[in-house]
Design a protein around this nucleic acid. Structure first.
Length: 349
DNA sequence: TACTCGTGGAG
DNA sequence: TCTCCAAGAGT
């Protein structure tokens, strides 16, 4: 098919030199695909290099400590990805003797491997003609094939999977799938697609109809909620109190300065009162040092950051006193990093 | 199905 | 400043 040839030839000539394109190792390709979920290429590159250097094989990752993994992942977001990745890798180590399975049925059973990632690993690492439909592919094919279904709806993905299954190259499924994604990243972009540079323009129904700017059809997301917190750097000598978040939910198992949810803006006097209730000990000298907003994908934190001194505190389960050096080894999220930076600039940590 | 789950860059 | 988003998966 001429479409396949035009796409694959363009990919061969124009593809970016990315680190995960320099390996044929299914495990390392797996790592890259997990990191790339909802995350930009430029962001992933340094994380990917560090990760495969530190965990070059399935066994290296299977044996790693979760806290070390989270520290490696720190700043990438969607932290359950690395927990699920390790769970999947452990299963490959134990059940498949360290070899990533090469069938959609088996690979899809691995934790964290969904329909896209399964197809990506199968096609890129094993050369198997399986669909790998991500946001790029839906955007590109919605234009080429003039598909006007809402790509925000989950059921729509199957339409594109079926389309790819029909048109995928069996000679080079890796270049075909990657070519569609690369085209979406470089040419067939969300706004102002570069149609005059497009290698498959002649095959594009939307370009033919002048509708490339109207596709894809995508309904808008609803707006997010906001929550108010006080974040507390409680000091005792040269140590500060840190708290581990619960094992599920937002920022699971990440560390933070103890936080309390509030109804409105936090005042120092109220914080001291709140703390004495929560800690059964003496907390004094509360002082607000920073106020900031942190926007997550589905909610916003409005945070007032305080320093305070703790005396004779009974440390609750899941909290511990850490030195400045120990603090550096704990995985923390963006908002906690903002507080930590403020403390360091004051010389308090 | 709809919601949860992070971050930083682009327009 | 605001919106949308970028190689999605789990529940």
């Amino acid at each position: 098919m001429q479409f396949q040839n035009d796409l694959i030839s363009w990919f061969a000539a124009e593809k970016r030199d990315l680190p995960w394109r320099r390996t044929a190792d299914p495990y390392q390709i797996w790592v890259s695909e997990i990191m790339l979920q909802q995350t930009r290429v430029d962001t992933v590159i340094p994380y990917y290099k560090r990760f495969v250097e530190k965990f070059p094989t399935v066994n290296d990752l299977a044996e790693a400590d979760e806290e070390v993994l989270l520290k490696q992942w720190e700043g990438l977001g969607y932290y359950s990805r690395v927990r699920n990745l390790q769970a999947g890798v452990k299963e490959v180590a134990e059940k498949y003797n360290g070899v990533v399975p090469a069938s959609r049925k088996e690979i899809s059973l691995l934790k964290g491997v969904g329909p896209y990632t399964a197809g990506a690993i199968l096609s890129i690492a094993y050369g198997i003609p399986e669909h790998a439909v991500d946001g790029n592919v839906m955007r590109v094919l919605s234009r080429i094939l003039l598909i006007e279904e809402d790509i925000a709806k989950p059921k729509t993905r199957k339409v594109f999977e079926d389309a790819v299954t029909e048109i995928i190259s069996h000679e080079d499924p890796s270049s075909f799938n990657q070519g569609l994604m690369e085209l979406g990243a470089l040419i067939c972009t969300p706004t102002s697609p570069k149609c005059l540079l497009c290698p498959v323009r002649d095959h594009c129904a939307a370009f033919h109809e002048g509708k490339q700017h109207e596709l894809p059809i995508k309904t808008k997301a609803k707006k997010t909620k906001a929550l108010q917190y006080a974040m507390l750097a409680i000091q005792k000598g040269d140590k500060v109190l840190m708290e581990k978040r619960p094992p599920t939910g937002l920022l699971a198992n990440m560390w933070q300065f103890p936080m309390v949810e509030l109804a409105g803006e936090a005042l120092a006097a109220e914080i001291e009162e709140e703390l004495s209730e929560n800690f059964s000990g003496s907390v004094s000298g509360a002082e607000k040092i920073i106020s900031f907003k942190h926007v997550f994908s589905h909610l916003t934190w409005n945070v007032d950051g305080f320093i305070a001194q703790g005396e004779n505190l009974k440390v609750p389960e899941g909290m511990k006193w850490v030195t400045a050096e120990e603090l550096e080894s704990l995985p923390i999220s963006g908002p906690v990093q903002k507080m930590k930076t403020a403390l360091q600039q004051r010389g308090d940590v």
